[in-house]
Nucleic acid binder design. Structure first.
Length: 157
DNA sequence: CGTGTTTGACCGGCGC
DNA sequence: GCGCCGGTCAAACACG
């Protein structure tokens, strides 16, 4: 398996240096693929459950890759800490259909990155889930999506 | 009219 | 304090 586009951190400290705008706490861990977003779409219209994808953990078990081959081959990296999930997806499009409806509520330029960060909230009334979408500043062919919170519902819309 | 986007203002935390 | 920085609000706007 190729790790192109993703360099596993030697330590939490070096990883934070590598991606300093992502505030992963020191004790962030990988603990399995999303149960909360089982229907996430990888790219375009290709839709597969996460648990059917190929999962690769690094030796420390602190990060992982999700690799899916197909006509739109996509590599994803996922990290999790305390209900916050970050994915790195190789994709030309930033609007990745993950099965939920989102309402954009903000957009900011972040320091040291030429790319804006977009803020979305789940469209379902009262649902607390938010996500951020931005391009990887080091490799703009990747889109980083960070989910926060647990849906208060199960239907996608 | 219903829903979602755009965009500058606003706000709170933090370092100096 | 003050200013920077990231996150959110909300009024105006777009579009079916």
């Amino acid at each position: 398996m190729s790790n192109d586009g993703f360099k596993p951190p030697d330590s939490a400290e070096s990883d934070r240096a590598y991606r300093s705008d992502f505030e992963f706490p020191d004790d962030w861990t990988f603990d399995g693929w999303l149960e909360d977003y089982p229907e996430a779409v990888i790219s375009g219209s290709i839709q597969i459950p996460f648990n059917q994808a190929n999962v690769i953990n690094d030796s420390a078990g602190t990060s992982s890759l999700l690799q899916v081959s197909g006509e739109n081959e996509t590599v994803r990296e996922r990290r999790e800490v305390k209900g916050r999930y970050a994915f790195k997806t190789k994709s030309e499009v930033e609007i990745l259909d993950d099965g939920y409806r989102w309402r954009k509520y903000g957009k900011k330029m972040v320091k040291n990155s030429p790319n804006p960060r977009n803020y979305y909230r789940c469209s379902v009334e009262g649902c607390p889930v938010k996500k951020r979408v931005e391009r990887d500043r080091d490799d703009p062919s990747y889109v980083i999506t960070t989910y926060e919170g647990i849906h208060s519902h199960h239907s996608a819309s």
